[in-house]
Design a binder for these strands. Sequence first.
RNA 1: GCGGGCGUGGCGAAAUGGUAGACGCAAGGGACUUAAAAUCCCUCGGGCGCUGUCCCGUGCGGGUUCGAGUCCCGCCGCCCGCACCA
Length: 871
Amino acid sequence: MATERYNPRASEPRWQAAWADAKLFETKTDAPGEKYYVLEMFPYPSGRIHMGHVRNYTMGDVVARYRRARGMNVLHPMGWDAFGMPAENAAMQNKVHPRDWTYQNIATMRGQLKSMGLSLDWSREFATCDVDYYHRQQMLFLDLLDKGLAYRRKSKVNWDPVDQTVLANEQVIDGRGWRSGALVESRELTQWFFKITAYADDLLAGLDALPQWPEKVRLMQRNWIGRSEGLLLRWALTEETAPEGVKDLTVFTTRPDTLFGASFLAVAADHPLAEAAARDKPELTAFIEECRRTGTATADIETAEKRGMETGIFAVHPLDPTWRLPVYVANFVLMEYGTGAIFGCPAHDQRDLDFARAYGLPVTPVVLPEGAEAESFSIGTEAYVGDGTMINSREFDGRSPSETFDAVADRLESTDLFGAPQAKRQVNYRLRDWGISRQRYWGCPIPVLHCETCGVVPEARENLPVKLPDDVAFDKPGNPLDRHPTWRNAKCPKCGGPALRETDTMDTFVDSSWYFIRFTAPHAETPTKPDVANAWMPVEQYIGGIEHAILHLLYSRFFTRAMRDCGHLAASEPFQGLFTQGMVVHETYRDGREWVAPADVAITEVEGERRAKRLSTGSDIAIGSIEKMSKSKKNVVDPDDIIASYGADTARWFMLSDSPPDRDVIWTEAGVEGAHRFVQRLWRLVSEAAPVIANAHGNGVDDEVATSIRRVAHRTAQGVADDIERLAFNKAVARLYEMVNALSASLNGLNADAPASIKAAGREALSMLVRLVAPMMPHLAEECWQALGEEGLAAAASWPSVDPALLSDDTLTLPVQINGKKRGDVVVAKDASKAEVETATLELDFVKTALAGQPPKRLVVVPGRIVNVVV
RNA sequence: GCGGGCGUGGCGAAAUGGUAGACGCAAGGGACUUAAAAUCCCUCGGGCGCUGUCCCGUGCGGGUUCGAGUCCCGCCGCCCGCACCA
């Protein structure tokens, strides 16, 4: 029978309208069913959606639709992470207002997302640049200020001396400003900070209560927080060399056990002692200046060649008053970590070793690895950081490093230096407070005022929101708020006198640190409605890119705690389940020096070799490596083009099918075509069988064929549910291929004369199949659902229930190994005992041959899995 | 530099420590067709004295185990994050 091909272009918009008319995805907090909050990381409105979005939102949609089919009350919202630099860059380049640019992009992207057929509750949509949103964010800022969780201090920024502006790390290229090309300097500004370190221990401990997070993300956060137990240790400076008024230098160390291996001390370039030492030393001043020229990015600082300069100051060894060590200024010591000063033990720290080798400092090993000889052990180019036995450490020789740590700490804690204990045990964190000040226009204004008489004063709550002015110009670099003629002028809420508004805006990470809570009550006058937030939080399943593993997720965990402590909700952890999906990558093509977009390329295969031709010119071009889709390499595929030619379901199916979701997926034209063939194949299977089986009723007696059809359907239903719950979408897809292969074999050519039992089994199986694919290909599922004559919408249908009796066979076929290699099978009853399996195995011909009359050395039977005969 | 990950056929990949390569893509052969497309069927890791439950094979080198792609140790290669990109 000839069947019409499935036409997604006509079908998809129709079903999208049907869902919208039924308000199927608009969520009510008091609706029946267990709550399930599924969320994908909201997009930055860059202009158009890209394939990464398609992948991310498809995964979330599968989860949302599956959970809804399971009878849960699902919350699945969407919004826009809408503040940020690209809007200002566009304003500068194209003379378009950041607000207009952003809202236009949102309109485009909303349309694109709608064409994907996502089961989103659009009634909750907002953008972080909406006044309604940042108004409530300003309320939260004032809450944090009241709690002492927001404060001001000096901090360094990248300064472009030509453009007279602050640069983001990504705007610094090889130490120069991206626009001006000027050498970047680091400059100190007074900036706003959130006290995330107040929650360091809680954030660390909380990770243990997140079993549904990937272990690697928890590990990364643990390392980022970087809790370490160590010692604050004061070193006396020799009187002759110490700057005036300075008697000692405090270092933080996690290795007091290696104190006898010390060969120098070093301070950061902006340490007060460095500045003091540089007072009458121009070459040291010059060196400090040079260190400041490295950008503020940690990666730049730590990959720079280790350099330092002597201060001329000497320190006295805490355990030997006759031992003097030089104090250096070094570029690898960070003011932000510990006390900004270290003692260097080159033998047991790689950075210290690199430094010591460069400056000819002694390298004395004090920890001897197990199995090494004290006399012959020496350090080459690699420091030894492992455990062992103390050597060259006088009275501590022969003890373990951990014993020595405690002994040294105890002794120095009870030693007096200038009227105070010389050392103090301390827990230190690598985590730093969160600097939120940005010297930019397109962000949430920080609601404080600077009053001549009262100083820094929070804006009165009744005066919120502090709105961004619309009349701004981007004709010169820098922050337009600073040069606005009137916006800054305000009244001090405390004394009523004249005051100036803060012109810094907030880091966009603040916006994304609580949007998921705002979704629970997106129109509330207050930041949250606590009872509603408590009804929905935490998010059961959060899905997004691995690149957010640390910053966004850690800030969100902090912000949720801070909001909890300000009474906005009860939860501490925002995301109970986290999934990090891989990127979408694509082959690159280049024509000489020029990158060529895939849409302009035709691939042919000649004698097994793939060749690329440029469509516009007909010239042969080179096929390059497979890389993350990026505008600069032009290896992007526009979701609109794919949806227009194949439909959203094909794009969704391909995104789910080809790779495990946490790994990168390679977008290929052939893969998409394969996915589309399956769409058509499924439609053919259902639409051709439908007229024959539409009204089929079973006679209650299943023959062998009917039973096998039913087995396939029920097993697949069980497997697909398990796979979706574990987010193993690629495996669910493979199962559905198998099911369609099996059903095609049994149902193709089925006619009206077929036995009733087969027609009934076929009808049951197809009805199940449609519901199993519905979360992944929702439009096709509706079309099939209709063809089968089922009631209502497939999107509202419940997940098929599984008959456990159909999940297993009566017999089991176990592989039989001889010495670990598979040599055959043994068939036993499903519930056969171990002894019965052993007997059956020893009866097998090839086992008898292998044993040659001898008893087996060993017989391993793993119930339900395998038998291994050891001869 | 520090931190995290990944590595299996021509390709994307499967495999609670238990039959390596399910499923898909590409390729080759065949059927249908005047022809093409679509569809359907078969083959598809390598090797061999190629109809054998034969030998080899999961980046490389060792180890643990009755049994290792999976666990442990040491390498190699590629990718991601590093606090002002989002």
